Simulated scan of single mutants.
Amino acid sequence: MQQETTITFIGAGSMAEALISGMIKTLYRPEQIIVTNRCNQKRLEYMKKTYGVRTETNKEKAVKEADIVILAMKPKDAAESIASIASAIGEHQLIISVLAGVMTETIVSLIGKNVAVVRAMPNTSAAIGQSATAISQGRFATEAHVAIAKTLFETVGIVAVVPEHDLHAVTGLSGSGPAYVYYLVEAMEKAAEEIGLDRIVAKQLILQTIIGAAQMLQTTNKHPSILRKEVTSPGGTTEAGIQVLERYRYQEAVVACIKRATERSEELGKELISSAFSHAAAPSR
């Protein structure tokens, strides 16, 4: 990818920040990135001060300057926001969407042009270059567009190219996944406090435990159930702990969590279509 590519982010929330943080550590210079949002000037000032990126309150101007436009607003604001920049988007531009649940065809319809759209689902670990991102090709996107998007997201972690119908599942699994891990750590820290461990010592032990377990999974060919059994001695402490998790149906809860997040991704897409239809049907003033 050419180093002089200009990238405009529509939206300045946590996902946009994570991506920008990772991107400027690798392939892009801050001045190649423009950030705009709906109305939060303080947020734009923070992004400029923290990352050195360019900011712009005029969304149409920000879009016209871009080679790549990244849609990173809240899904509930997507219909209105995309409609507001549609006239500024040209068919030569690549549109990358990180909007949970929103199909590429919906975006093309909202823009009203045969524009190349690549849909992506990264996670916030992009901020430290450790995102797990899946991307999918829209109807008017070429393999070259997919390659550009893949290169962009490889600056913040690993990338898998998947059929678009799999992205709802990806959203529920890895897109939301870091929050599940953080929730587990919250519980472990609470338990450490209740059993009397020093907070700082406990945090170090918890984090290294999670890092070590992840690396074991990554570097061995063993199934996680095998690794678990290797830690679990009959009649020992681990077995006693696992029995409590089984009593509380821990695995069932995790499976249900991921399924519900997947369903919510599908719902968000339907809600956007409904919102877009209502917006289009509303009488002009």
Rank of each mutant, 00 (worst) to 15 (best):
N37C: 00
I20L: 10
K25Q: 15
A253V: 09
L167A: 05
M1T: 14
Q32D: 11
I34W: 07
T50K: 11
T171W: 04
T219M: 09
Y250H: 08
R247I: 01
S225I: 02
A179M: 05
T238F: 15
A144E: 14
V161Y: 12
K270G: 00
A120D: 12
N114K: 11
A187S: 13
A187E: 04
T171G: 11
A191H: 08
A86D: 04
E186V: 04
T151E: 06
S275A: 15
A276Y: 08
A261I: 04
A179K: 06
E60Y: 01
A127C: 14
V118R: 03
L217W: 01
Q93V: 07
V53T: 12
G101I: 12
K222P: 08
K42P: 00
A116I: 07
H165K: 07
I24L: 14
V244H: 06
S125K: 03
S275L: 11
A78R: 12
E267A: 09
K150A: 15
P283G: 01
P30A: 11
K74A: 09
A86I: 01
G129D: 00
S21P: 05
T106K: 08
G13H: 03
A214F: 02
L245W: 06
S84Q: 13
M15H: 00
T26A: 13
K59V: 14
G11R: 04
H165S: 10
A83Q: 15
I7M: 02
M188W: 09
M47I: 00
K270D: 02
A79G: 08
A214P: 02
E164A: 13
T5I: 13
G138H: 10
K49M: 14
Q93D: 06
V63A: 00
Q243W: 00
V117R: 14
V255Q: 14
T155G: 07
V35N: 03
P163E: 15
A214C: 03
E65M: 13
Q41E: 13
A187Q: 14
D67Q: 10
Y182R: 03
A149I: 02
K42Q: 13
G11F: 03
S136D: 09
T106Q: 09
A16D: 04
P30W: 02
G129F: 03
I95Q: 13
R43V: 11
I226N: 07
E31W: 01
D198G: 01
A191S: 10
S87P: 03
Q208C: 11
I242M: 11
I242Y: 00
I273V: 12
A202G: 08
S81M: 08
V244W: 05
R139T: 07
F153R: 13
F277W: 08
A240D: 06
M23V: 01
I158D: 10
A261M: 02
E143W: 01
G138K: 04
G11L: 11
Y248A: 07
M1D: 13
G157R: 01
K76D: 08
I89E: 03
I226F: 02
A120N: 13
